[in-house]
Design a protein around this nucleic acid. Sequence first.
RNA 1: GUGAGCGUGGCUCAACGGUCAGAGCACUGGACUGUGGCUCCAGGGGUUGGGGGUUCGAAUCCCCUCGCUCACCCCA
Length: 424
Amino acid sequence: MPYLQVPKGTRDIMGKEIVLWRKVEEVVYETAKNFGYEEIRTPIFESTELFTRGVGEGTDIVQKEMYTFTDKGGRSLTLRPEGTAPVMRAYLEHGFAVQQPRVKWFYLGPMFRYERPQAGRMRQFHQFGFEAIGFDSPACDAEIILIAWRIYERLGLHKLSLEMNSLGCPSCKFRYIETLQQFLQREIHSLCDTCKVRLEKNPLRVLDCKNEGCQTIFQSPSFPRLQDFLCEECSKHQETLLATLRFLDIPFSINPRLVRGLDYYTRTAFEIKTGELGAQDAVGGGGRYDNLSQALGGPKVAGVGFAAGIERMVLLLNKMGQGLHALETLVYLAPLDGEGELHLLVLGRRCEELGIPFYMDFADKTLKYHLKKAQKMKVRFVVLVGKAELQNSLFLLKDMFSGEQWTLSQEELLKKLQEEKNSA
RNA sequence: GUGAGCGUGGCUCAACGGUCAGAGCACUGGACUGUGGCUCCAGGGGUUGGGGGUUCGAAUCCCCUCGCUCACCCCA
């Protein structure tokens, strides 16, 4: 490999795969428009503090996955590992909290996390996400889930499962964590090493540990369950949300062990999974983050949102064997010499003005080369200009599918191509 | 960060430690001097990821390193 390579965990997205990316992006834009969400584009890098405070000091993201660097002005900056904290930062920075407290935004773009690459996991990966800020109602949680669901439906991604849980508000979450810590303190001898650390730093994470020893502790009948600690408002919020989902015919299951890896989540937490991608099975996830604004030094602001990974969705679409066509060129312009090139480029300009997609190959090549290439590109028509055509200011048009060909003037040619374009 | 598997022309892969590392596909040209898909012929393209070691001799064995893949962890 004599050439430079892309950095580990990154890749070029190109060729036929781009078609699937475009498709996902189009569905996202379309669905956002239909649900009344506006696009927001935040910077790729932010001050490191935004994520340590927003995502949480004790999270894996902050502890080991961030691309953090110091710029020439001595500022500590971080390539964004997720999209919600930057969106909340923008909300607060631009005074939405007082001016226009309720907003619905969506974003789409690259995120960065320093992890070992694996199927469906890259160091630069792409997410789109929807955020509804300033809304308390559980119906808004339902709308967020509905949007995610609709996007998957529109793309034809079936066999997805939705898992729901509630983490409670800060106060019930806090009461639960206290009880949990006390309980685990007594069982600390059977906890795995990482869980011993989690116990102090991020106790909720202990819940989804897959270690056997930890698992047996969970089975204990005296193990404190989060749902028993939810305050009245929190459990009512959850009940209403679940009722709304049933009303919307969105199937789900309750997973009391579902814990999100980011500190800002409160109450609703959900994950959308597939069985087709191996270990990286989450294609989307989200929840409520009524805590985030305050963590960033803002006022109390409600919020709920979700994010989905585009790479994983594209992998799924690929598995389903979507038909792919890289280009939709209608006509291939084949010059047989330099003078032919001049006339064909003029014709190409006319084609473009009329919305007829053309491809012109400037290689100084034989007719045989051009026909082969046009055939390989699956282009239906070829326009050929050589000496014979130049003498009479005519063009030779060949239909590669039927083999028919005609000698035409420029206007006749364009007319025919337009007819073919419209009938296609 | 931990573990396992793998690095050979552009791509997919051959080659018991032994002449000059091969094939298919792709590419280029020709048979067919302005008519494509098939066929045939010819051609270009490799310091076998990199470095070190063992050996008379290394793509092959050993060590280091880089990269890829999958899994753990975690997440989208």
